[in-house]
Amino acid sequence: MTMKNRIEVKIGGFGGQGVILAGQIVGKAASLFDGKHAAFTQSFGPEARGSACSSQVIVSAERILYPYVKFPDILVVMSQEAFVKFSPALKPDGMLIYEKSLVTPVDLPASVRTAGIPSTQLAEELGRRITSNIVMTGFFAAVTGIVSEEATRKAVMDSVPKGTEKLNLEAFEKGFAYGRAHAAPAAAGAAQRGH
C-alpha cells in the first residue's frame, strides 16, 4: 500500500554506539523543528539483546499510520553485523549510510546508493569516541536532507546530556561538513523521492 511522502529509516549498530539516541534526534528534528510528522521506535526484546541493536524512524509530511519500518528507504549501519542483519530489507532504490572503517558493504543491488563516513575516527579526533553517533547524525542530515541542518542541530542540543552540548555540537558540525564535502548532493534528492 503506498504511503506518500513517507521515508523509513533504520539505524543499526552494536550496543553502546548510540543508535537509539541518533534515531531520537532525527525524529525530534523532523517533528519538533521541521514541522513534519515523525515516529520513532526501538527494538526491544530478543532483537535488542546481543550485539545488534536498532532504532527506527519514520518521517512523513502526513500523519503516520503504520508505525513500523519494514523495508527502510535509508539504512544507517555502524557495525558489520548490523549491515548483514538489516541490509536485505533495504529497498532496492534505497540508500545505505555506513561507518566506513567498521562496515564493508557487500552484495548490494547496484541501485542502492551508498555514503560512508569514518565517524568513530572523527569522533576520536574530537577526543570522545562516544560522540560517533552524533557525527553520524550530522552526516545523515547532510547526505539525506530529510531533516534540515538547523533542525538537526537544535535536536542534538535538546537531546544530549547537560554539559556536553559544546562537544556534541562539534561532533555534529564535523559529521555535517564531512557529508557536504564527500557525498553527492544528488543523493539527498533521491532519498526524498519517497516511494
Binding site: 517533528s31 519538533l32 510528522h37 526491544f44 503516520i64 508505525p67
Partner: peptide, 9 residues
C-alpha cells in the same frame, strides 16, 4: 506496547 514505546510529538 506500540503506543507506549513509540516516540512522537
Amino acid at each position: 506496547e506500540c503506543v507506549g514505546h513509540m516516540h512522537e510529538k
